[in-house]
Simulated assay, not measured.
Amino acid sequence: MAWMAWTVPTAIFFCVIALALLTFTVLAIRYPETPRLGVLRIETTRGDRLFITLLGSAFINLAWLGTMSDPQWWALILCLVYATAVFRWV
């Protein structure tokens, strides 16, 4: 892995994504679910909501980097609020 310049935040990011995928795989095996209708009126499963959360969080962070001079921690807090809303209502 010496070919890639790993930093602690990068390693943490990829570990969190890997753990989320592993957790959702175990949940899908142990507790199968049927898709549910949310506020957007589309059927989503846990995996769909995880994907929507990751995609939206990426856009939130990119927009934050491009428009704000405040620390990135505020964008991460906003992403947690967004993730909570997606898993609750979408």
Rank of each mutant, 00 (worst) to 15 (best):
F59K: 00
V86Y: 09
W64G: 05
I77P: 00
T44E: 06
T23C: 09
F87S: 06
G38A: 06
F24Y: 13
A83G: 10
L50P: 01
A18N: 04
D70L: 15
V81S: 01
I52P: 00
L76H: 03
P9A: 11
A85H: 09
T84K: 07
L54R: 06
L37D: 02
A20R: 09
Y82I: 00
W3N: 15
R46L: 08
A85M: 12
T10I: 13
V26M: 05
L37E: 03
F59T: 00
L62K: 03
M1G: 15
F14V: 07
A63L: 10
N61W: 02
T23D: 05
R88C: 07
P35C: 03
A20Y: 06
F87L: 13
I52F: 08
A75I: 02
I77M: 05
M1D: 14
W3S: 15
V81N: 00
W74E: 04
L50E: 00
T10K: 15
I52A: 11
S57N: 09
L80K: 00
C15S: 13
F87N: 13
L78N: 00
T67P: 06
V81M: 03
A18H: 04
S69V: 10
V39G: 01
I17H: 09
I52V: 04
L62D: 00
A11C: 11
Y31W: 12
R46G: 13
L55D: 02
M68S: 15
I29S: 07
M4T: 14
T84E: 02
G56W: 05
A11H: 08
T53K: 04
F51T: 01
A85L: 15
I12D: 05
V39W: 12
I42K: 15
L76N: 02
A11T: 11
F51K: 05
L55V: 04
T7E: 14
I12V: 15
T45M: 12
F14Y: 14
V16Q: 08
G56I: 03
R46Y: 07
F59L: 06
L19G: 12
T67R: 14
E33A: 14
Y82M: 05
P32Y: 09
I17R: 06
